[in-house]
């Protein structure tokens, strides 16, 4: 997962894969810090319908076999999960609060 040494020494074109393929996974790029609003789940209201898991455009909502949970490293705070939640269990909270 990600070649840390290459972060310091960027590669030249001769050692890149063909066809504009990235050589690193996009997992290396943590996009969570773009977030202004943070989704917070109230497990008291959550009914495990998994709509948020299905709708998250960044696959930043995960399922551990019992419940859904947020991966804040990649959640950009778009709020779709909160919008689709049928029990209003996901609240968007301003970052830093």
């Amino acid at each position: 997962m990600g070649d840390k040494s290459s972060v310091k020494e960027p590669r030249g074109w001769k050692s890149l894969p063909l066809g504009a393929l990235p050589y690193r996974l996009s997992l290396d790029y943590k996009t969570g810090d773009w977030r202004a609003l943070k989704p917070v789940i109230d497990y008291g209201k959550c009914v495990n319908c998994m709509l948020c898991w299905l709708y998250c455009p960044d696959s930043a909502i995960l399922w551990d076999g019992k419940k859904v949970f947020m991966n804040y490293d990649y959640c950009k705070g778009c709020g779709i999960c909160s919008d689709v939640c049928p029990t209003k269990a996901i609240k968007m909270v301003p970052e830093g609060e």
Binding site: P10, R11, G12, W13, L16, L18, G19, A20, L21, P22, S26
Partner: peptide
């Protein structure tokens, strides 16, 4: 694999040179 995702000033140029080659 991801095909054609975002490149900025860090890699775009390196991805264009192989076309010329």
């Amino acid at each position: 694999i991801s095909i054609g995702p975002l490149d900025l000033y860090d890699y775009y140029f390196e991805h264009k040179v192989p076309q010329a080659v």
